[in-house]
């Protein structure tokens, strides 16, 4: 499996070849639409991310010290952002998720304003992922969705 940094670089390259904001948003939305569907049973109030203008559900699981997650949003743009997070972090070792230092949200010209907003939920989602990654390490197997201790 490629490293987080490798995946990040290839995503940045993908966006870099697109010529204008419309094409970049187009691609972002396409990524979102290809996001694997979320199990409807996981769309609970506990799994709702606070601090977003739109509805975002986010369920993190830990197995064999690896982090995976499912997510959905009524916003196509946020779903695209979630898809990027999913490509970057889902299936990665918990230790690597904990230590991930993502630059992609600052480098894509597309969201020079998006990334600084708390409203898109990236900051909240990342802190949930990192918290879950810390809990996930050193545990044999824990397959439940994100719970209150991971703070979804």
């Amino acid at each position: 499996m490629p490293t987080i940094t490798e995946i990040e670089q290839s995503l940045i390259d993908d966006f870099a070849v697109l010529e204008n904001w419309e094409e970049r948003y187009d691609y972002l939305i396409e990524l979102g639409q290809n996001l694997p569907p979320m199990d409807p049973e996981l769309k609970t109030d506990d799994n709702k991310v606070h601090g977003c203008q739109s509805s975002v559900w986010f369920a993190i699981a830990c197995k064999d010290e690896k982090i995976s997650f499912q997510a959905d949003s009524d916003s196509l743009i946020i779903k695209g952002i979630v898809a990027i997070l999913e490509k970057l972090l889902s299936g990665q070792a918990a230790k690597d998720v904990e230590n991930a230092d993502l630059t992609i949200f600052n480098t894509l010209g597309l969201w020079k304003h998006l990334s600084s907003q708390r409203s898109n939920g990236v900051t909240a989602m990342l802190s949930h992922l990192k918290a879950a990654a810390i809990l996930c390490q050193g545990k044999a197997a824990k397959t439940s969705s994100v719970d209150s201790e991971a703070g979804a």
Binding site: W21, Y25, Q53, D74, S75, L76, I77
Partner: peptide, 21 residues
């Protein structure tokens, strides 16, 4: 069928400031 948030973000890229939510 479109989230207000998406409309606000995409209007902003065109210089149009509205509020959503």
């Amino acid at each position: 069928g479109v989230s207000a948030y998406d409309v606000g973000i995409l209007l902003d890229t065109q210089g149009v400031a509205v509020r959503t939510g």
